[in-house]
């Protein structure tokens, strides 16, 4: 068996902590995929994946939030059943929901950047409410913009048709997730590494 013979190059402690959190958050996003909470007067129930995309940006920050969601996509692509409906495989990334999936790391990075204003993390509980709301709205816009845009191109629909199928039924529910995400970080029970 081929082995590495060079000197061992240990990973820095802070990176190990952030990396372990990023990997477990990626696994958690897969684990909550089957959870759906019905809400009155809406055809779409609350699913929790996007909530955790929000939390990845808020708690892990721009760098590790993006890493976490990239790991989620890679894990699904190589066959771990983490995508909606326990599906997996490289094809899902190019399939109907591919645009939403590729948007996850971008949205987590954007939310992290807006909330933490750089790569040094600060406690999200101390961040002002308008900044939190603005960051999450921007993240939602990225997810549904990329998701519907890709679906329109892929399935040969107009952008309006794609928005009717892929965004309009879900956006009201996203507002509830936004409130839930803010309630979670304002509880102060999740401390980012280094704060």
């Amino acid at each position: 068996m081929a082995t590495e013979h060079g000197a061992v190059e240990p990973v820095r402690d802070e990176i190990v902590r952030q990396f372990a959190r990023a990997a477990l958050l990626a696994a958690l996003i897969g684990a909550v995929a089957p959870v759906s909470i019905p809400i009155p007067f809406s055809p779409a129930p609350i699913t929790l994946q996007v909530l955790f995309v929000f939390l990845a940006g808020l708690v892990l920050g721009p760098v590790w939030g993006t890493v976490s969601l990239t790991l989620y996509l890679a894990a699904g692509a190589v066959g771990i059943p983490v995508f909606a409906g326990f599906s997996a495989g490289p094809g899902v990334l190019f399939g109907r929901s591919g645009g939403y999936l590729w948007a996850y790391p971008v949205a987590a990075g954007l939310i992290g950047l807006l909330v933490h204003r750089g790569t040094d993390l600060r406690a999200p509980a101390d961040v002002s409410l308008p900044v939190l709301v603005g960051a999450l709205v921007a993240g939602t816009a990225v997810i549904y913009g990329m998701g519907s845009g890709y679906m329109a191109w892929l399935l040969d629909m107009t952008v309006v048709e794609a928005l009717m199928v892929g965004a309009v039924p879900f956006v009201p529910v996203e507002l509830l997730k936004l409130v839930a995400a803010i309630a979670i970080v304002k509880s102060g029970r999740l401390q980012p590494v280094g704060t």
Binding site: D13, V16, R17, F19, A20, R21, A23, L24, L25, A27, L28, A31, V32, V35, I37, P38, I39, I46, L48, L51, F52, L55, V59, L176, K177, V179, A180, A181, A183, I184, S187, R189, L190
Partner: peptide, 25 residues
């Protein structure tokens, strides 16, 4: 309510996952 349930599962799920992550690291 739906928001209550979502934030309950979100917060507990994430704190448990991060506890595991810290032990793992």
């Amino acid at each position: 309510g739906a928001i209550d349930r979502a934030s309950h599962i979100g917060l507990l799920g994430l704190t448990r996952a991060f506890d595991r992550a810290d032990r793992l690291s």
